[in-house]
């Protein structure tokens, strides 16, 4: 059973990563910086629990704030660039963060051993969960509390006027300005919220793996962050969850027995999925029919 709980932990953390890209994508910004915000959150939360001895919950709060502040700082220059140039710029930022942690040493002695981030060796002994005797199930439930909280927040935003404004900006920036929407405020706030979500996700990730290093936050992670909401569909937050389950549970774990064939199938199945469902797993029509079936269910 622990295997499935572990898998659910992974799915939960990746859902947060995907949702952090989801809200940014709504405004039409394609950002490869999410892995960078994820890394900032992971290191911040890890250092607070290991070095400062904090409880994990306030540490996650601080890591969300630090990542959000980082994202806000990235959001302003990102306003001036669009499309492919933004992809390149955010990719450069993400790599910058990774290289920063590759060179980041901050160790203190704790009893016999030294703990803390040590450059390329990474940051080991993030042992909050084992030290407090949390079982895999408890950790899984803890992670999913945050996932559900964030999903509820984004679901609410999606139904609000702010959510409609995010989508309006994503569709047509000129028209959005012409109806009185402040492009700067909307794009930067979406980036900041996305950063905060990635920060929580990173903090949780650091604690359930107990060991993070710079390569845990490479371009592949940034690509996954973008792929989840795109494969899942931008109509609803539930699409991102479905996509994470599809990719992590089915493609990566479910096909593990296939050995090398898995890597080949992985790409092919993603291409197939996108061809069959070009607007994502949960597109407007699917959501509408789900709503009919369940009556008063999730509103797009």
């Amino acid at each position: 059973m622990d295997f499935y709980f572990g898998l659910a932990q992974l799915v939960g953390v990746h859902t947060l990563l995907g949702l952090s890209a989801y809200i940014v994508l709504l405004t039409g910004q394609v950002s490869l910086a999410q892995a960078g915000f994820f890394a900032v959150g992971a290191y911040t939360a890890g250092m607070l629990t290991v070095l400062a001895g904090w409880h994990l919950v306030p540490a996650l709060g601080v890591s969300a704030l630090v990542s959000a502040a980082t994202a806000c700082a990235v959001g302003f220059p990102a306003l001036r660039i669009k499309g492919l140039m933004l992809v390149v710029a955010t990719l450069a930022f993400g790599e910058g963060v990774r290289l920063f942690f590759f060179n980041f040493d901050y160790q203190i002695a704790k009893g016999e051993v030294k703990v803390g981030p040590l450059g390329g060796e990474g940051f080991r002994q993030i042992r909050f969960f084992p030290e407090h005797g949390w079982s895999t199930l408890e950790v899984m439930l803890f992670i999913w509390c945050f996932v559900l909280l964030v999903m509820a927040l984004l679901w609410w935003i999606d139904r609000s006027r702010y959510g409609a404004a995010l989508r309006a900006v994503g569709e047509d920036e000129l028209a959005a300005q012409a109806v009185g929407l402040n492009l700067t405020a909307i794009k930067v706030s979406a980036m900041t919220l996305g950063g905060g979500i990635a920060g929580i996700g990173g903090g949780l990730y650091a604690h359930y793996t107990t060991h993070i290093e710079h390569s845990s936050f490479n371009i592949l992670v940034a690509t996954f962050a973008l792929a989840y909401p795109i494969v899942g569909g931008l109509q609803s937050v539930f699409g991102t969850v479905v996509a994470v389950i599809f990719v992590q549970a089915f493609l990566i774990e479910g096909l593990r027995d296939l050995g090398d064939w898995r890597n080949l199938l992985f790409g092919a199945l993603i291409v197939l999925a996108m061809n069959l469902r070009p607007r994502g797993f949960l597109d407007a029509r699917t959501l509408a029919s789900l709503k009919r079936v369940f009556g008063g269910g999730p509103r797009a």
């Binding site: 309006a168 569709e171 300005q177 109806v179 009185g180």
Partner: peptide
């Protein structure tokens, strides 16, 4: 632009620029 709108100048476009993936209601709401 958005400040001018708030001051009271609204416009339409020569080639229609609606928010196509928003509903009619949402287009007016935003």
């Amino acid at each position: 632009t958005h400040r001018r709108l708030q001051a009271g100048i609204a416009r339409t476009f020569q080639n229609i620029r609606l928010f196509g993936q928003l509903t009619v209601w949402q287009n007016l709401w935003v």
